[in-house]
């Protein structure tokens, strides 16, 4: 399985690989990514500490910002784009995300119900 034995024709991209760009373009990509990431981070920290916004919206805003920032990282640092060559990488990512979503969401949902119906030992103690 050596590199030479494979036809160079395949249009596959490795995860993290960029399509052929000049060094300048690539550096620019990282600069933009870094700037966006810092901006989103700053916004998160600002929102978490401020009294200026409606308080109940803060958790939602933080989650949204976090997801946005993860997206920025994926696109600018890990170079997972949705171009046709990247389908396989993105599909794997989608499967991973689905599982993460199911596990975290499922756990939170299930455990909330269990806690409501059958609280852990020390909570029962406290209720008595």
């Amino acid at each position: 399985m050596s590199d030479q034995s494979h036809a160079p024709t395949d249009h596959d991209l490795a995860p993290g690989e960029e399509e052929q760009h000049s060094v300048g373009t690539r550096i620019l990509g990282y600069v933009v990514g870094l700037a966006l990431a810092l901006l989103l981070t700053a916004t998160s920290f600002f929102i978490a500490g401020t009294d200026l916004v409606w308080q109940p919206s803060i958790p939602v805003a933080l989650i949204v910002l976090a997801i946005a920032q993860m997206g920025v990282h994926l696109v600018f640092f890990l170079h997972i784009t949705t171009g046709p060559d990247n389908t396989n990488n993105v599909l794997a990512l989608a499967f991973g995300l689905l599982v993460v979503f199911l596990v975290v969401g499922g756990t939170v949902w299930i455990m909330a119900h269990l806690n409501a119906n059958m609280p852990p030992m020390d909570q029962i103690m406290r209720m008595q």
Binding site: W109, I110, H113, L114, A116, N117, M118
Partner: peptide, 8 residues
């Protein structure tokens, strides 16, 4: 059987 309740 461990208390998840009917909807879950």
């Amino acid at each position: 059987t461990m208390g998840a309740g009917p909807d879950v």
